[in-house]
Amino acid sequence: MTLSVAMSISLSGMQAQQNRAAATAKNVANAMTPGYDRLQSKMTTVEGGGVIARVQPSGEAALPGSSNVDLAEEMLNLVEAEIGFKANASAWETGADMWDVLISIKRD
């Protein structure tokens, strides 16, 4: 695996977690909207490396006059997205640091 591929994989992970956090924000914003069907994020691996978040309605039944959003579950999803984003950002930063070292070695 090349360094650029590793950085591309971590970038796709950050983008997927960003999509997941956006879906969670929509769910929280619409928690009190009658009939709202919460959005779910499903992570799917991409051939060649990486991941993509597919956001789709859950399809679960909502109680009459309310939504099927559980705010505790949404907060957990947000924390998980934050941790996943930070892990991928750390991997990307490590790759960027390695590029800097390679460039400085080549110049010398």
Rank of each mutant, 00 (worst) to 15 (best):
V46I: 15
V55W: 11
D100P: 00
Q15Y: 01
W92C: 11
G59R: 12
R20C: 10
R54Q: 04
A29H: 07
Q40R: 13
K86W: 05
R38H: 12
A29N: 07
D70P: 03
V101T: 14
V79A: 10
G13K: 00
P34G: 14
I52P: 00
A61P: 03
R20W: 08
M1G: 12
A53K: 04
D108G: 15
W99D: 08
Q15A: 11
S66V: 03
T44D: 09
E60T: 09
S41P: 05
S67L: 04
S10D: 05
E82Q: 10
M75P: 03
I105V: 08
M14L: 02
A6G: 12
M1Y: 05
A89I: 03
D100M: 12
A61L: 12
A87F: 00
M7G: 01
S8G: 10
S90K: 04
M1E: 09
A81P: 04
D97A: 09
D70T: 09
P64W: 08
L11Y: 03
E73D: 04
V69G: 01
A23K: 06
W92L: 09
E60W: 08
N30F: 09
M32I: 05
D70E: 13
M1Q: 06
W92H: 08
E82C: 09
G13Q: 06
F85Q: 14
V51G: 07
L39F: 11
G35C: 03
V5S: 03
P64Q: 07
A31F: 13
N88H: 00
I103T: 13
D37H: 11
M75N: 05
Q56M: 07
V5M: 02
R107N: 14
P57M: 00
V28A: 05
Q18V: 14
M14T: 07
F85A: 06
N68A: 12
A29G: 12
A91T: 02
I9Y: 00
M98Y: 08
D100C: 01
S58A: 04
A22W: 15
D108N: 14
A31L: 10
K86I: 11
V51S: 08
T44L: 05
E93M: 09
A91G: 03
I83M: 13
D97G: 06
M32Y: 14
V46P: 15
L102C: 05
A21N: 09
Q40F: 13
D70N: 13
Q40C: 07
Q56R: 08
R20E: 08
D108P: 10
R20T: 04
V69W: 15
G84M: 09
R107P: 12
K26F: 11
T2F: 01
A23E: 01
